[in-house]
Structures are given as C-alpha cells and as structure tokens.
C-alpha cells in the first residue's frame, strides 16, 4: 500500500532564514503522527506547508506515492485546524457548519444535526459564535474536520483552551478518524492518550542531528 503522505528531506526557509530542514517522515492511512520539538522548531510551519498555505518548500513531498510539483497540492484531501479557527463570529453555529459542509469537500452521508450532536453543540446551534466560549469555538472548528471527507487531518495544538472533557472528545475524534482509514498529523505540548508515531523536528531533539 502506498503511503498517504511522505516527506524526504523537507525544508522551508523564509527571508534567507531556515525555519526547518531535513524532515523525513512517512504516514499511512490509519496512522497518527505527533510532531515534537520546542517553540521555534518550525512545527507550525511544517503543518502549514503540508496544508498548502505556504508554497515553495525545499526537498520532496509526495502524496499517495506521487511527488508533488512546486505549486501543486492535494488541497481536496487535507483539512487543517490551527490557532486561527476559521469560524465566523458574526454567524451562528449552524450557519458556520452549513458553510463548512457546502464549501469544503465534505462527507455526503453526515448531516449537520449529527455533527451538532456529536460535538455537543446542539443547544447552541442558533447562537452567534461571538457569544461562545473558547472551548465551544474550538469544538465548532473541529466540526469542520468531522464534516470534511479529507483523509489527512492537520492539527496545530488542538488542545489549547479546551477543558478535560473537550480533550477527551478531541482524542475520540482523532482515534475514530484513524480507525476509519484517515491519517492525522498534529502538534501538541500535551501528552496524548493515543497510539501515535513521533517525529522530532531535526536539530532540536536528542536524536536529531546537529545542523
């Protein structure tokens, strides 16, 4: 079975400054990859490169065994969740979800009601997002992942501002996604109760080579 995404000596630099380099990993369907490294190691940037926000990486990145050309990407098959949640605060929870479902390539069998239920946002569906708490917003943003049919989830610190219950929910979602043949690449400072592979950003960990 070909890998979903693999990186070979992947690097990214900006304004002559190397943000990261020499990243190698392979991720298959059903796997969870957790990226570790201190602040400034380029974890978030790596996720943004994978998400296609940043063009012009160095090294090689392949999707389903096919190397990506510069400028090309597998947009339809990734779903990214970062610090900026991408939810509109002057729309209601339901309206946001409807936009996620209709705009991004989404899972046709899942209904918004089911997702509202699953994310425990049922009661809040007609509330404006601006009235929601940080944790509730995070759950709304996660519903974009649940609704999407993308196989690769990219999560940048998904546990920020989430209570214990919320953490459990997110972990369940990730495990569920992996068990259905999806893949997850994530960064987190928390220890995660999930079976996952680890990738240390090179140059910053004990095992990593020095530059």
């Amino acid at each position: 079975m070909p890998s979903l995404v693999s990186a070979n000596d992947l690097g990214f630099s900006r304004e002559e400054k190397v943000i990261f380099r020499g990243v190698d990993f392979t991720i298959h369907a059903g796997e969870i990859l957790k990226i570790t490294g201190p602040n400034g190691a380029g974890k978030s940037t790596l996720l943004k490169v994978l998400a296609g926000f940043l063009t012009g990486f160095d090294g090689e990145l392949s999707y389903q065994g096919e190397p990506l050309e510069q400028g090309g990407h597998f947009y339809a098959d990734v779903c990214y969740l970062g610090h900026q949640l991408g939810v509109k605060s002057n729309l209601t929870v339901y309206e946001n979800m409807a936009f996620f479902r209709d705009f991004f390539p989404s899972n046709p069998v899942l209904s918004i009601d089911e997702v509202l239920d699953q994310m425990q946002l049922w009661r809040l569906q007609d509330d404006l997002v601006s009235t929601l708490s940080a944790g509730q917003r995070q759950r709304l943003a996660l519903s974009r992942l649940v609704l999407s049919q993308a196989s690769l989830w990219l999560l940048d610190e998904p546990f920020t501002a989430v209570d214990v219950e919320g953490i459990g929910l997110i972990e369940r979602l990730i495990a569920q996604h992996a068990s259905r043949g999806g893949a997850v690449v994530m960064t987190s400072h928390h220890t995660v109760n999930l079976e996952c592979k680890h990738l240390a950003m090179p140059g910053f960990s004990d095992q990593g080579e020095d530059q």
């Binding site: 998400a51 296609g52 926000f53 990407h73 947009y75 339809a76 990734v78 990214y80 970062g82 610090h83 900026q84 949640l85 991408g86 939810v87 509109k88 605060s89 705009f103 991004f104 390539p105």
Partner: peptide
C-alpha cells in the same frame, strides 16, 4: 481584515476553489 485574522483567508487558499 476579519477574514484574515480569524483564519478564513488561509482556509480559502487551502480549498480547492
């Protein structure tokens, strides 16, 4: 500005549209 700050702009770029 609002779209840019809440991450919508990034999502639009990473959408296939």
């Amino acid at each position: 500005q609002a779209d840019f700050d809440d991450g919508t702009t990034a999502l639009l770029f990473a959408s296939p549209h």
